Amino acid sequence: MFTMKNFIFGYGSLICPQSRAITAPSLSNSTAEPVIVNHIERTWSARINRRRRHSGLQKMAPSSVRGWTPVGVRFRRGAVCNGVLICIDEEELFRFDEREVGYNRQRIDVADIHRHVDSDILINESMSLWPTESTDQENCDDMTPSRARDNLDPGGVKCSECRLVFERASVKRRKITTVSGTIALSEECEEIAVWVYVQNENLPADRAYPISQSYVDIIMRGCLSISRDFARRFLETTHGWRHDEWLDQNDGNNTNNDGEDDESNDDRVSTLNRYIWVNDRHAPIYCRADFEYSLMNGKEIDELIQEHHPRALKLRVLAM
């Protein structure tokens, strides 16, 4: 009898092995496979209310700050998001359900899941930096861009369970079926479920619920443990670093423009909400922050952020 194989798509602090071990100790020795997922958009939009005795919040802003804003996700056609794929058992899945208060667990179509491949490899192969949906439904023997990407260094997949996900995803994208009409897949697994936790409310960061740099550092620590390119992909695919950018996203202007040449002020953004990002490295808001890591690696992280979000970084403040 076959059993369900469950996976979680981690798009925030779960990317970081050290943070993941604290959140779910049973996963401390699990392999997290870097992936790209189509049609999921990551934004600074999952507000968390302050804890009364949290020392970081007390030092940063004893009266004005009511909480902070980590990243959240939503399904959005045409969006793309990087993260990690983690195989978990049903017991751990239930524990995640209990921990993730304010989130709904939703299933991801495996056809939207792709292996992460560093940009230098893709450029050498003259391939797109981002995976695209295969449009070749008739000539399955042709090497479409999607299939070519799937065939890049198959031995590079470290998680054996995740290899089954990539196999299923590749087959489904090519729409190859057996005579009986079922998707051809390894006999070891009849069913695969990939889950993502989506916040119930989608609210932007603001002065009362700022972005915490100590939390950004934890995510970047995880990204950099995979590759510098993966860290850049995180910065590139995360939206809402500025309040006006979040408004643009929700007005249907699906861009992530943060060029230094555009210094205009958006009339929709109040003076207070112009400053939504706090550099709390000296007094972390985030409960699983690593003070020493931030101290040693903050400069490198800021340099990467500067490449992608220079305007937002200019507006980062030391206190609210």
Rank of each mutant, 00 (worst) to 15 (best):
S146Q: 15
D89W: 06
T182H: 13
D141I: 15
R207Q: 12
T237V: 03
C87V: 05
I211K: 01
E260H: 11
D261A: 09
E90K: 11
G155H: 10
I176M: 05
L129F: 01
I219S: 05
E292H: 03
S270L: 05
E307H: 10
L315H: 05
N279C: 08
G56A: 09
L247E: 07
R233L: 13
G83E: 05
V269L: 14
S160E: 11
E100H: 06
E300G: 02
R47G: 06
Y215I: 00
D142W: 09
D89V: 02
E190I: 06
N200D: 15
I88V: 11
I301Q: 03
I8L: 13
M220T: 02
E167V: 03
D248V: 02
S186K: 08
S294P: 01
K158N: 13
N151H: 14
L85N: 02
P284S: 04
N29T: 14
R207E: 15
L295A: 12
H308Y: 15
R20C: 04
N104M: 09
A61H: 10
G240N: 02
R76Q: 06
E303Y: 07
D280E: 06
H282P: 09
N82M: 01
L164R: 07
S214T: 00
G156T: 00
R147M: 13
G252N: 05
A208C: 09
V80Q: 03
